[in-house]
């Protein structure tokens, strides 16, 4: 609890939001990088289907995505049952895990698309040249691809993080709204407004606004220092 301008504000939803967003970003970079690479190098017509699948969360109402995730990951659903077989306890929905799973799906296009475009922009002959200089696949990836896609990684991480911070529908569906456990800041603000607690809503909203602005300025500042044009 924080006392601000005579109003007490519960900061737990903010911390939870940042935590979920950070974990989601890491997961997305780990999963999104190979996926984006695979898609960037894909020549067959399957690429269209895959691109469309990855882009789905952009057009789908978050509630639809949330609904399907709820069905697939519910405590008696196939995925949970499968994990239980390996000794998994707990559940995938209405928990922090659920929030992360939902966020990963929801923010997938924001992480994958910038990476895919960055990878596509790297001339194949640079990788060929590295191969003729005895660099194996991972060696080439970390010495040529990663340094040349810095900006793609930066944009990808920023968008994934920012988009997760800003989500509402999916976390409500998959995470529920359990105070202290799955109540993220966007939902918290909604609740405050619903119960006419405008002071709390004001403070939380302003904090989010300032925080988001700072993060974006930091990112674009770094981007400039790398000498790459923002745009």
């Amino acid at each position: 609890m924080l006392e601000l301008f005579g109003t007490s504000v519960n900061l737990a939803p903010i911390w939870l939001t940042l935590e979920v967003a950070a974990i989601t970003t890491v997961v997305l970079l780990l999963l999104g990088t190979p996926l984006a690479w695979w898609m960037a190098k894909m020549r067959s017509s399957n690429k269209v289907l895959l691109e469309a699948l990855v882009a789905l969360p952009l057009v789908l109402p978050p509630t639809v995505l949330g609904f399907y995730l709820l069905i697939v990951f519910n405590p008696t659903g196939p995925v949970t049952e499968f994990l239980r077989f390996f000794g998994f306890e707990g559940q995938l929905t209405f928990s922090k895990t659920g929030l992360v799973i939902g966020s990963v799906f929801y923010s997938l296009p924001f992480a994958v698309q910038p990476l895919m475009h960055a990878f596509e922009a790297i001339p194949q002959r640079l990788l060929d040249a590295a191969a003729t200089m005895r660099a194996g696949f991972l060696d080439r990836f970390f010495t040529i691809v990663v340094p040349l896609s810095q900006r793609g990684f930066l944009v990808s991480a920023t968008l994934a993080f920012a988009h997760t911070v800003g989500e509402f529908g999916v976390v409500l569906m998959v995470g529920g709204n359990i105070p202290g456990q799955t109540r993220m800041v966007s939902i918290d603000i909604f609740d405050h407004v619903e119960s006419l607690e405008y002071d709390q809503a004001h403070i939380l909203s302003a904090m989010m606004l300032i925080f988001s602005l700072c993060v974006l300025m930091l990112v674009y500042g770094l981007n400039r220092r790398f000498g790459v044009k923002v745009g």
Partner: peptide
């Protein structure tokens, strides 16, 4: 046999130097 194990040198049309 993967290219890195072939022990060749290759000069490309546009040099293909690493820009970074």
């Amino acid at each position: 046999l993967p290219t890195p194990e072939r022990h060749i040198g290759f000069v490309f049309q546009d040099a293909a130097l690493f820009p970074h």
